[in-house]
């Protein structure tokens, strides 16, 4: 115990190396476990389909499923879900975001727009 209190420089170096290795070992082990868990519980990738010649959305994006899927306008990325927001306000918000980012609107992808009420905060 006294050796550890008045630790030598060599022992301190060895402890530091061992400690860093233990941290890596623990987190690599955790990486393995989490990855394994992901294999069983991660969502299945949706089948990609082209609708009306328009490429399907990115894999990671949520897919909006409707009964009668109308062909989308060229350049669009899909439909945006609106919660407690009227289309006019949504259009203005999307335009403001596009202007702020200096990126054409058809290169942006809006998934949903929701009005945050005071009690939600």
């Amino acid at each position: 115990m006294s050796d550890l209190i008045h630790i030598s420089i060599g022992a301190a170096g060895a402890t530091a190396l061992l400690g860093y290795a233990v941290v890596f070992f623990a987190l690599v082990l955790l990486l393995g476990v989490v990855s394994l868990m992901g294999l069983f519980t991660a969502p299945k990738k949706p089948a990609e389909k082209a609708v009306g010649g328009i490429p399907a959305p990115e894999r990671s994006a949520p897919v909006l499923v409707t009964e009668n899927l109308a062909p989308l306008a060229p350049g669009t990325a899909g439909e945006v879900k609106l919660y407690d927001t009227d289309p006019r306000t949504a259009a203005m918000l999307m335009a403001i975001v596009a202007d702020e980012l200096q990126t054409p609107l058809n290169e942006l992808r809006f998934i949903s727009i929701r009005e945050i009420k005071e009690e939600d905060q």
Partner: peptide, 16 residues
């Protein structure tokens, strides 16, 4: 997780 581990380097260098 590997980045979380790599960033503990300072802990052990400062200890030394």
């Amino acid at each position: 997780l590997l980045l979380g581990a790599a960033a503990q380097l300072g802990v052990f260098i400062a200890f030394f």
